[in-house]
């Protein structure tokens, strides 16, 4: 386990209590297979929620519906009061409010690190180039790799690439950050550097939803856990609840396997 020095569940003390994400009865099918079954939950501003569960449980699909990389087939999703529908203008608003970090980084290999970060602010937010570059340097500073700005993604280590991906998502100044298994594709020695960046982000009050199996990190940072299985939220509660007193058999079984 990493150091427990920082205050646990720091977000709780500062939270404003405003609903940031409202998910009501959301279902999703891939052909005959139902990936999400009537999922309902609410996430508040500055809350850090960790989602975990066995593979194929729908946890990835769940967070991908939150910025409409996947469309939900039933139910309602409200992001900061805006409903996710087929409406392109709404979608545009939501996409720039929700940042996403992928398991495979998905950096653009033909662009330099800096250009990866400045592209969206310039093209979507119409920031002048100088400002966008200034912003990129600040963010690279924040994730600890300002010296890599002019390199190409393929020249960086996996951990560095993922940190660039985080900086890239932050460049749109999102209110919410989604992390889809951000450390699963990394070599063990690089996991910590990425988690450190995420921890700093959580402490700064960012609303975060993280799919991860790094339970040490999760316990330390999260306000709330969601346990997914079979497309449903099987159990939710504080980290302490999960580590000391899980209720459901499936939760117990899964926790015993990964801890």
């Amino acid at each position: 386990m990493t150091s427990q020095q920082t205050q646990p569940a720091q977000g709780q003390t500062q939270r404003t209590g405003r609903d940031m994400i409202v998910v009501e009865g959301v279902s999703k099918w891939f052909d005959d297979f139902q990936a999400l079954r009537d999922v309902t939950t609410t996430m508040q501003e500055q809350e850090v929620v960790v989602v975990f569960g066995p593979s194929g449980s729908g946890k990835s699909t769940f967070i991908r519906t939150l910025n409409r990389l996947e469309q939900h087939d039933a139910g309602r999703i409200l992001i900061d009061g805006i409903e996710l529908t087929d409406d392109l203008a709404n979608l545009e608003a939501i996409r720039s409010e929700v940042g996403m970090v992928f398991q495979q980084f998905n950096l653009f290999p033909h662009l330099t690190v800096q250009r990866n970060i400045t592209l969206a602010p310039q093209k979507v937010r119409h920031l002048p180039q100088a400002e966008a570059e200034e912003l990129a340097m600040q963010l690279l500073e924040r994730v600890g790799i300002p010296e890599q700005a002019d390199k190409f993604p393929a020249q960086l280590s996996g951990g560095q690439q993922q940190r660039v991906a985080i900086a890239r998502a932050l460049a749109m100044q999102p209110k919410i950050m989604l992390f889809d298994e951000p450390t699963s594709a990394l070599d063990p020695e690089m996991i910590k550097e990425v988690l450190d960046v995420m921890r700093e982000l959580a402490e700064s009050g960012m609303t975060m939803i993280v799919v991860t199996h790094e339970m040490g990190f999760a316990r330390e940072v999260a306000d709330r856990f969601l346990f997914f299985d079979d497309g449903q939220i099987v159990e939710e509660g504080t980290p302490e609840h999960f580590f000391t007193d899980p209720q459901e058999d499936r939760t117990k079984l899964f926790l015993s396997q990964i801890l």
Binding site: D86, L88, L91
Partner: peptide, 11 residues
């Protein structure tokens, strides 16, 4: 305007 903003309608 709604119609124009709908992704499906645009397609």
């Amino acid at each position: 305007r709604r119609l124009w903003r709908s992704g499906r309608a645009r397609r």
